[in-house]
Design a protein around this nucleic acid. Structure first.
Length: 365
DNA sequence: AAGATTTGACCATG
DNA sequence: CATGGTCAAATCTT
């Protein structure tokens, strides 16, 4: 656990550096290039960096449990590489959520994809709770894939018109890894809640127990912020110009980390998408033994350097800003990041803006 | 009985 | 036409 300090420090530095970099960009382009909206987003991004930095400091000071601190920082950081983009090729109708109600149109509408890689202990049936209620609606054998792909949609699709979906695909190379692709933003009550309250704790508990031999106890206060395995995050462009954007997935599977983490870095590095100009950020749970195998310097910062140390287009800014917006949906309830992502960029139709599913796990272990 | 899952059929897309 | 995504009836679970 001696790495916790370094981890937190790196994140802290990282956040401050981000804020500084964005501020510098903003200063340079104060009276040119960027639109008013973009500037506003930049400012929000800056504020977010400081908020997060302060958050880390506050948390550090208020808790003696380094584990929870690490969980919080990991989660916070993990929200950073999120990016979103609307396809400029789509007309506004396609962005209109109303069209989502027409299944015939769904394939042509813009979508935002979150892709997450989550690992589990071997022997698991499948992915675990991510804070939302999903209903399986299909399964399909995928060409070249060893395991079938499962399709889930939000349980509240009919009752609340929530069109969030996810796909779960077990990894060929490492069956303990599941690629989970999220599409659509939760508009249901769960999606609006900072902390989804499991409606049926028993069910969740059963799932959790099923997937983990190791259960973690929490203090009452910290029970709201139980985050688990944050594995890898990948950003990919979809072929039709749609943007996949990464977000992190606060797994509740604590028990699996030590075993599975070995495979995470290789599996993602080998991924061809990594070589095709996409970037990936590896987020490893700070308490993992394997954490020590990571470069002593902040590997995340290197990733972010790739963002900040190049000329920024407006779309780049948008990506960075959306990083910010995601953090405003901080799953940590007591953090008062109240920015509504919908308001971040007026050019984005609200209902199609998708952010991190705020996958906050309120696990009642 | 209501809700969830399974699974083959259907459909859109490239 | 092959493939992936979704539908919906049948089936299972609660």
């Amino acid at each position: 656990m001696e790495n916790d300090g370094r981890w937190e420090q790196n994140i802290l530095i990282n956040e401050l550096v981000q804020g500084m970099e964005v501020a510098r960009r903003l200063k340079e382009d104060m009276n040119a290039t960027y639109s008013a909206d973009t500037k506003d987003l930049l400012l929000q991004r800056i504020l977010s960096s400081y908020e997060k930095a302060l958050l880390i400091l506050r948390w550090n000071a208020s808790t003696s449990k380094s584990q929870n601190m690490s969980q919080a920082t990991a989660t916070l950081f993990s929200e950073s590489p999120i990016s979103i983009s609307a396809s400029p090729l789509r007309d506004d109708k396609d962005h209109n959520q109303e069209f989502k109600h027409d299944s015939k149109k769904r394939k042509t509408m813009a979508k935002w994809v979150d892709q997450v890689r989550v690992s589990f202990e071997s022997g698991l049936e499948g992915p675990h709770e991510d804070g939302y209620n999903w209903r399986k609606y299909g399964q399909k054998d995928i060409l070249g894939a060893k395991y079938p792909r499962s399709y889930y949609r939000c349980t509240f699709r009919n009752t609340q018109g929530c069109w969030a979906t996810k796909q779960v695909q077990r990894s060929d190379e490492d069956p303990t890894i599941f690629d989970i692709t999220y599409k659509g933003r939760h508009t249901c009550s769960q999606g609006n809640k900072a902390v989804p309250q499991p409606k049926s704790p028993d069910k969740h508990e059963k799932l959790q127990c099923h997937s983990n031999e190791i259960q973690h106890r929490q203090t009452s206060e910290e029970s709201l912020t139980t985050f688990g395995t944050i594995m890898t995050v990948k950003r990919d462009m979809v072929g039709n110009g749609e943007m996949e954007y990464p977000f992190t997935f606060p797994s509740t599977s604590f028990g699996s980390m030590a075993q599975e983490s070995y495979s995470l870095i290789p599996s993602t590095l080998e991924n061809e998408s990594f070589l095709s100009s996409h970037f990936q950020t590896h987020l490893l749970y700070p308490n993992m033994q394997e954490f020590k195998y990571l470069p002593s310097t902040s590997f995340q910062m290197n990733e972010l350097d790739g963002i900040y140390n190049r000329p920024l287009s407006e779309s780049d800014i948008t990506e960075i800003i959306s990083t910010n917006t995601s953090t405003t949906n901080s799953p940590v309830p007591e953090f008062n990041f109240s920015l509504d992502p919908v308001e971040i960029d007026p050019n984005f139709p609200p209902n199609t803006l998708d952010f991190s599913p705020r996958a906050l796990i309120n696990k009642n272990i």
